[in-house]
């Protein structure tokens, strides 16, 4: 409580902590709902996953690191042992959504856009973008309630728990990859890669560094099927020592490297969610039918981005 009453801590920091507590509560609500869901085949494992991540997100600021770490391992263990299952799916029927559309109509776009607008406004005014996101979500909820009083707090929480259960443990990949990245940094992995790559590409030529970094991101993403996994490894190994070390703009170079990775995602069957699952959902004959339609745009975009990176570095 001291944290929230202390005048020395900026308001945005306090509000951000409130946002994390709400996110944590959503996870804990998801844990509770799955625990008492008779249709969930693994209520305890699912509750352990969402419960432990919920505690770390909500109270991580105050927990000792070793406790948070242990909870993250518990979360990971329940996912690895395949004990996390989505329970009952309470999706609305087509008739229900149609009936709502007939009443609400195009106004539904207003709450849809409010989240992004508030994030942007807060970021521009020097506030915290994530607090802005939270504010936008609040506005969207109020608007949805104004459109239809059926949209009570419980509906929002139930729908959030439903979506969270559907995406499941995969949703925790970005923070876990960031954790892996910090272990790599702690161990000095980047220095070793830099030593190897340095034998093949000349030191001090930033443009060559950019080309290798961008193409490397694309190829690594194609092999791994995941640009998020590639960016942690490639940035520590190539981006930092061969591009950023020579004074290139870190925000521009690394962010664009991520979208270079996305070009790789467009080209690989390893990214099954995007390129192979749709083939099945759409009953296509050619297994590579989606990828074939993405080759030309991906090639144009990687070339465009490399030129853009060299120009604005």
């Amino acid at each position: 409580m001291e944290f929230f009453t202390s005048p020395d801590i900026p308001l945005m920091t306090k509000l951000l902590e409130v946002v994390y507590i709400i996110i944590g509560l959503i996870c804990l609500y998801t844990a509770g709902r799955n625990l008492f869901d008779k249709e969930n085949k693994s209520p305890w494992g699912t509750a352990a996953f969402w419960g432990s991540v919920g505690i770390v997100i909500a109270f991580g600021r105050w927990l000792p690191d070793i406790v948070s770490g242990a909870l993250i391992l518990l979360m990971s263990a329940s996912a690895i042992l395949r004990l996390v299952k989505p329970g009952q799916d309470l999706a609305p029927t087509a008739e229900q959504t149609k009936a709502k559309f007939d009443r609400i109509g195009m106004k539904i776009f207003i709450p849809a856009l409010s989240i992004g607008i508030f994030s942007l406004v807060f970021a521009f005014l020097g506030g915290n973008a994530l607090v802005g996101t939270g504010f936008g979500v609040l506005v969207a909820m109020v608007l949805l309630f104004a459109f239809s009083t059926d949209n009570k707090p419980k509906v929002f929480f139930d729908d959030a728990a439903r979506f969270l259960s559907i995406v499941g443990p995969t949703s925790m990949l970005p923070p876990l990859l960031a954790v892996l990245g910090s272990v790599f940094t702690l161990a000095g992995v980047g220095d070793v890669i830099a030593g190897i790559v340095g034998r093949f590409i000349p030191q001090g030529n930033v443009n060559i560094g950019i080309v290798v970094y961008a193409l490397g991101m694309m190829l690594f993403t194609m092999i791994m099927g995941n640009a998020f996994a590639a960016i942690t490894v490639m940035t520590v190994g190539i981006g930092a020592p061969f591009v950023l070390a020579y004074g290139a703009d870190p925000a521009a170079i690394v962010m664009l490297a991520l979208t270079c990775g996305y070009c790789g995602t467009l080209l690989t069957p390893m990214a099954a969610n995007f390129n192979i699952v749709p083939v099945a959902i759409l009953d296509m004959k050619d297994k590579m039918g989606v990828i074939k339609n993405q080759i030309l745009p991906a090639v144009i975009m990687i070339v465009f981005q490399i030129i853009y990176m060299i120009l604005i570095k």
Partner: peptide, 17 residues
């Protein structure tokens, strides 16, 4: 994990057409 906060409204917006 901010996407979890956004989920408070994504599902309900789908529900509302």
């Amino acid at each position: 994990t901010i996407f979890i906060l956004v989920m408070l409204v994504t599902g309900t917006m789908e529900r509302n057409g």
